[in-house]
């Protein structure tokens, strides 16, 4: 295995922060080769910046010994790696079968109106990005959505208003879903 310290290319270390590099190095320490941590590394960068910019991607590719095209091919395969900026929190409303039966569509329209944001868009205040999500594994409490890392279940319009209001006026964690 290559030594991560001596192989740090200059470009990588100037774009990737020491905190990011430390987390990436930890992944590399139990991988058979550097490129094997590509997905973990993309997620680490995203955790720190909300998304993965071209600049970060190039630096990361360099650091992992891959071409930017190869790394971008991986990044764009996975829907939870964001290659465009997102807001402070991503709202992921489930659009799969049980949530469809239980009427997610009305809720989708409601959120679009309430936040004045289309699917795939970010609110003007940079607070939320609204994305559709495949089944979130909570179909017995459909319809469901995630806001950031929190799951909210048995949704209706009133509940959504409450969640989004609480979230935008205070930083209090609400008790609507199981938390993380």
């Amino acid at each position: 295995m290559m030594n991560s310290k001596t192989d740090n290319p200059l470009q990588a270390t100037s774009v990737l922060t020491p905190a990011e590099l430390a987390e990436i190095d930890k992944e590399i320490s139990h991988a058979p080769y550097r490129a094997a941590v590509a997905i973990d590394a993309l997620k680490i960068v995203q955790k720190h910046h909300r998304w993965v910019s071209d600049e970060s991607l190039n630096a990361l590719a360099d650091y992992l010994g891959m071409s930017p095209a190869e790394l971008d091919g991986i990044a764009t395969f996975y829907n939870l790696i964001y290659r465009r900026p997102v807001g402070e929190e991503v709202i992921s409303l489930c659009d799969s079968v049980t949530c469809w039966i239980m009427g997610y569509n009305k809720l989708q329209q409601h959120i679009i109106k309430r936040l004045d944001v289309g699917l795939g868009e970010t609110t003007d205040d940079d607070r939320y990005t609204f994305l559709p999500a495949p089944c979130l594994g909570a179909c017995d409490r459909a319809p469901v959505m995630m806001v950031g890392n929190e799951l909210h279940q048995n949704l209706d319009e009133a509940k959504i208003d409450q969640i989004l209001k609480v979230k935008s006026s205070t930083s209090d964690v609400n008790n609507n879903g199981r938390q993380e």
Partner: peptide, 15 residues
């Protein structure tokens, strides 16, 4: 991975 729509059992076991 539990992503098959309509499936919510492994979540319970792990959580």
């Amino acid at each position: 991975d539990e992503m098959e729509p309509g499936t919510f059992k492994d979540r319970l076991l792990m959580e």
